[in-house]
Amino acid sequence: MDALEQLGKTFFDWQAMVAVLPDLLTVGLPNTIMLALASGIIGTVAGMILAVMGISRNRALRWLARTYTDIFRGLPAVVIILLIGLGLGPVLRELTGSTSPYPLGILALSLIASAYIGEIFRSGIQSVEKGQLEASRALGFSYSSSMQLVVIPQGVRRVLPALVNQFISLIKESSLVYFIGLVASERELFRVGNDAASNTGNLSPLIAAGIFYLCLTIPLTHLVNFIDTRLRVGARQKPEPDDLAAPVAQGART
C-alpha cells in the first residue's frame, strides 16, 4: 500500500499539477505552438521546393535535394538543434543583437521537417499516374503549369495523412529546443513541466505537461484518420449504366 501511495504521489500529485498549470497555459503552450507552427509552415514550403527539385530533370538539382535530405533526415534531431543553436547563436547575436534562441530553434526544426516533408511530397507527386501529366500537356499546358494545376494538387492530397503525422512529430520534437537554453519566458511545455518537477522533486508537473502534448497531438491523430477515410471513400468508383448515351449514329453500329 505504501508503494502504491508513493507512486501515486510521484505521478499524480494534484496540487503540484495545479500549481504548474498557469505556467503551462500562459508560457509553455503558446511557445510550443509557436515553435511547431512556425517550423511546420517553413518546413512545408521548403519541403515542397525540395520535392520539386527531387523530381526535376536537372541532375544537379536532384543531387542537391538528395544530399540535403540524406543529411537532415539521417542525423538525430538533437544533434542538429545543438549544432545550429549553439554554433550559429553567436553569429545571430552579432548580426541582430537578439539573444533569443527561438529563431535558431525554429531554423533547426524547419531544416529537419523540410527533409521529411520533402520526401513525403515527392512520393505523393510521383504516385500520380503518368497519364495525368500527359493529358495536361496534350491540352497545351506547359510542364510547370501541368505540375502546378494537375499533378502536385493530386500528389499532395494523397499524402495529407503523412503530412499531419509529420506535424505531430514536430510538436513533440519542439521540446528539444530546451537544449539550446531558454530563459523563463521562453520555456515551452516540456521545459515548464521539467523545471517544476526538478524544483519539487515530484514528476507530476511533467505528467501535466504530457497531458498538454496529448491535447495537441491526439486531435491531429484523429484528423489523420478522418482524412485517410475520406480520401479512401472519395476515391471509390461508382460504376453506373451509361444512361444518356448520345444517339447512335448509323456508321458506328458494329
Binding site: 448515351a245 444517339p247 447512335v248 449514329a249 456508321g251 458506328a252 458494329t254
Partner: peptide
C-alpha cells in the same frame, strides 16, 4: 462492352 457504343457514336458524329 455496353458502354462502347455511346462513345463510338459520339466519334462518328464528330467525323460527320
Amino acid at each position: 462492352p455496353e458502354l462502347v457504343k455511346g462513345v463510338l457514336a459520339l466519334m462518328a458524329d464528330l467525323a460527320t
